[in-house]
Structures are given as C-alpha cells and as structure tokens.
Design a protein around this nucleic acid. Sequence first.
DNA 1: AAAACAAATGTAACCGGTTACATTTCCATC
DNA 2: GATGGAAATGTAACCGGTTACATTTGTTTT
Lengths: 332, 332
Amino acid sequence: MTNIRKVAELAGVSVATVSRTLKSPDIVSPTTREKVLRAVDQAGYKPNLMAVQFRSQRTYNLVVLVPTIANTFFARVISGIQEAAQERGYGVLLCNTLGNEAMETQYASLVSTRQADGVIQLRAFNPFSENAFPAGSPLPMINACEVLDDAPCPTVKLDNRAAAREVTEHLIALGHRRIGMIKGPRRSPLTRDRQQGYQDALSAAGIPLDERLLCPGDFTPLSGYQAAETLIALAERPSAIFCESDEMAIGAMSRIKEAGLRVPEDISVAGFDDIAFASYSDPPLTTIAQPAETFGREAVAMLIEVLEGRQVNNLMLPYSLVSRKSTAACRP
Amino acid sequence: MTNIRKVAELAGVSVATVSRTLKSPDIVSPTTREKVLRAVDQAGYKPNLMAVQFRSQRTYNLVVLVPTIANTFFARVISGIQEAAQERGYGVLLCNTLGNEAMETQYASLVSTRQADGVIQLRAFNPFSENAFPAGSPLPMINACEVLDDAPCPTVKLDNRAAAREVTEHLIALGHRRIGMIKGPRRSPLTRDRQQGYQDALSAAGIPLDERLLCPGDFTPLSGYQAAETLIALAERPSAIFCESDEMAIGAMSRIKEAGLRVPEDISVAGFDDIAFASYSDPPLTTIAQPAETFGREAVAMLIEVLEGRQVNNLMLPYSLVSRKSTAACRP
DNA sequence: AAAACAAATGTAACCGGTTACATTTCCATC
DNA sequence: GATGGAAATGTAACCGGTTACATTTGTTTT
C-alpha cells in the first residue's frame, strides 16, 4: 500500500510537507501544493485512517446499544442516529443487546479500549463500571428513549407519564371505564411512568384502579397477543385496552378478533409509538406518535457535544396523540 | 492513560515481556507471568486496541450496507449479522444507504482507508471502484439477499424465481387465474427473478401474461397500498395478488378492505419474507418464509473466510411457503 | 567442569501518520 | 549588500503496541 513516505519521495518533498498539504493546504506554497497533489494522485494515495486515528486518539465511531433492532420503533431511532452520525463524519457500531447486561458492558468497553469515542444507550442501564473513567470527567454517553432515573449522563426522552395520561383520557372521554393496560417489562422505568400516567387519568376521572386489568408484556406482537387473551377472559372484560407499544397493540387486536370480538365496536385498542404499520392495521391504530428519528439525531448531536467537552442539557421531545379508528365510544 | 510501558516498569520487566504475557502466556515463566498480571491489575491496564489494530492492520470491523434498516426483513438480517460478528469478535459498522450509491461507495471506502476489514452488501450494487484493490486479489465483500448477476464476490441468496413460482402455483391451485403482482423497484434483479417465477407458473398453467396486472412498488406498506388501489380499479379485477414483500402485502390488504372488499373472500393476498407481523395481520398472511437471520450469519461467516484468505462458495438458502388465511379458493 | 542447547527475557525497529522544533528560503527594508 | 523577520520546508520524536533478533539464564550432556 502506498503511504505518505512514497508520496513524499515521488513529489520530492518531506513527509511533513505532504501531511501539511493535505491537512492545512494554506500553509504550503502553491507550487509545492501542486506538486504534492499530483504525486498523491499518481500514487493513488489514501491516508491510512487507522494511523490517523491512532495518532489523534479519536476513532470517530459511536457505539449504539439497542435492546432489539427487530423492533420497528428502534429501527427508526437507529435510522436517525445513522444519518446524523454520517453527516458529522462518525461511524456507528451497532450492538443488538437483547437486554443482556454483560454484552452491553462489553460493548461499552470499546470506549475504554479506544475503539469508539462514545456510547448511545437506548435502554435504562449504565454499561460503565464505577471506575471506568476518572471521577469528575463526564461519561461519553447519552441515554435516550428509555432513560435511567439517575442517569450518569445527559438524556433524551419523552414525557411518558403525560403521554400515557393523554391516551387514557382519550379513552375515558369516549366513555370507557374499564380500561385494560398491556405493559412493558416489569422493571422498566418507562413502563412505570406510563402506568403512572394511566393511573393519573383514572383517578382524575374517579375510576378506581383494578390490578387485574394490568398485564405485563415485552413489546413484541406475541406478548400483546397473549396479554389480550388474559384480558378478554376476565369476568368483567375491559371495553378498551391501552398498549405500551404498537407492536403489542397489533398482537392484541389479532387475538381480540380471533375471539370473535370487533375492534373498536367491542373493544377499543390504543398503542404507543406510531410505527409505520399503525396506519395499515385493521382498523388503523390510535396511538402516541413519537419522533423516533429525532431521538436518534438529537442523541448524536448531544453525544458529540459531550465528546468535544461542552456542557449539554437533558432534552424532552414532544409527542402527539394520533386518533385513528381503533378507538371509539364505549357501548354499554 | 496507563500504557504497556507503565506496566512494564511496575512489574520490573520489559515491554516485550508484558506483551507476551498477554498474548501468549505459555512462553513466559510462571513467576514472571504472575508478576506481570499483578502489575496489569494494579495499573488497571487495558491495551489500547487502536494501537493493536494499527500495528496488525486489522480493525475487526465489518461494514454492512443495508438499503433501509426500517424494513423488518433487513432488521432481522442485521440481527443475524450482529450476532455472528459478535461471536467472532467483530464489530458491525452499519450504513443505512437508502439505495444512495454515493453513500455506499463512501462507506465501502472505509475498507480502503483501513477503518474496516470487509463489506457485507445487502443490495445489488458493487460499491468498489475498479481499481480499489489490486487485480487478482479477492474483494473483501459478500453480497447477500439481493445479489448482482455478475457479483465480483461470493453471494448468499435464495432461489427467488422458484419461490415466486411456488406462491403463484399455490394461488393457481386455489383456482385463481387473474393474479396481480406487486413488484419491487424496476431495476432490481430480485424483482426480475420473482417476476420470472410468477411467469413460469402462469405459463405452466397456460395462463397468458397480462401486463396490466403488474404494479411496481418499493417494498414499503405505502407502495403496496397504492399499487392495490391501481389493481382493484382495473376493469377485470384480479382475484389474487402476489406481493413481493409482506410490508407491501399489509399495505395492499389495508387498501382492499378500505374499498369494502374482503380478504381472502374477494381477493387473496400473498406476501414474501414472513416478517413478525405476517402472523398478526388480519387475516394472517400467506407468505414465503426466508431465513433472514441465517442470511446475516452466513454472510459474516463467509466474509471472515474471505478475509482469512480462504476460498468460499456461493450459498443458496432454503425458503418455505407458509400458508395462512389470506389466500383461499377463488369464487367465480 | 565445560560444552551444547533450550528457555526466558531484553532491545529496538517498526506500523503511518502528526507536529514541535530546527533550518532554510525569500522578500522587504535600511 | 547586509539585516531582520516571515514564510516554507525539513528533521525527527512520538502515539502504544508487536516482534525479529540479540542476549542472558538455566538445564542437560559428556
């Protein structure tokens, strides 16, 4: 492979001059610049970026820890990350962690071993050990989407509690009083916040909480399908179900219709995320639209700020209720 | 940051001994090994992998060029890539190209600039220029899923022609004779092969080809929705539609039902890919199951073979027709 | 006890850039 | 033409590992 020394020899100058010609062309004379560029061209020289990175101790790679890439919402977030990173000259090292903490820790250590400059964590878990970095210096990490309560780094999130409250209020406004909820994994702060919002709406409307109406899921269509099965088997069946993700809502609708019930006539269903399929389900799904790509873009922008030593503030992104045909007035 | 020299000093040995202790422990004496490991521990030493990579000229990163990560099928392929790469100690640099050739070329050049060791291309396009590598030496690339006819590298694919023929024959066996097809982008070899299979089945059954039944799409639900609109507006409406992807099939079903027609009673719909939502659509979708994760895993395995200088053969993966409720006998 | 050889360890070059510092070149000024 | 100072270029150290080769230490053989 041609290296900078070959080019220098070819151009009849020193390696320093070649380096300068490429990095700060303005400080070499036009004559020399010409000569060097011609040699670069002739030799087909491309700098070995590994050497550049090694020297500068920057990799321009970001690690992204995603619970599961197979989830449509995360796929959109990653698209946003990818685009923003690309624009700024960063690469994206993707890690599909499946919630495996050991794997997250291992990938995060790419930063300690200088294979990446920072981490974007899309899950509520800190993959860095206590002493991974000198105390006082900011962690090169951004926590987005599902964030830790006491995140050791800047966060980008959505007001899940308010959003869940708004969906629930929408259902209550339609006359529903028995509203089931298909939740996310038990320990997730995201699930806790959304449940809080759900309860806020209920108590504001004077509806007592019935624990039997709360079913855990794991954000997959299958778990929504199974949870719906439990809910429709209840003696007092809910007339509406709020699902913490569209994927679960789609699974739930499938099970509801399999049981010979209609959506929304017999049971209203609402989701969360507004994935592409939400518009194409039967019926189209009422849901909370999240700016998924923006999560990704903002996380990248913030991480780069951190990497460059600047101060950044936490960010709260907007959501909006999208009312489609899967929710309708409660029929007594 | 602690480096190997600090450790050497701490242990009272040379840097070479430290390096050897970590790379080939068996060639240093147990006493020294002990001493060095203690020093490594005490100093909290982690090798700077950037230096290791620089020295060895291997990055252990693979570039993955994916047309769009927002597509559920590709998300699964990437999961497979990710897992296999992780197991073998490789990282994955993801590039969501949106079919942008300039971007693909740019990302592929990460290999020339030594920021990655090889490329997995999931689209029918060669991102390397003629002279990117010395003639004769094999391209560090695998072309998977949608492959070039004259790929300059090993390929992993599925017999799209045979699979499309099988779906079409399934529809013909149900009595359908006017079978619409919602295709992929015009120039894709994948689309061409699937259309061939469709035509094979038609001509074997003595059904003449009607060009009006062929609608192009782009694999998104929206394009399926729009194509279905065209098809159901035809004077002689098809009684079945074969879609080249499940995403388009879901969009198509949505439009069909919006028009007041039923699936499968009025129009049968078949897809391709068997994404997670295919089981949960209403009705559940008849489709061709592709081993998406296997595509990814095999591509990684093959690429590493190539990188290590071994010979590899092209691979053809199996498919299977999954018959669900979206296809039924044609009613005259 | 000396010779012969293996095992363990040390020394220093090397990978390919970047850049501080040294040196040379060039032009303006007196 | 000598002097000063800026501009252009060159020299070589450096980043942090790896490894060929040299050297030392230890063990076996005669």
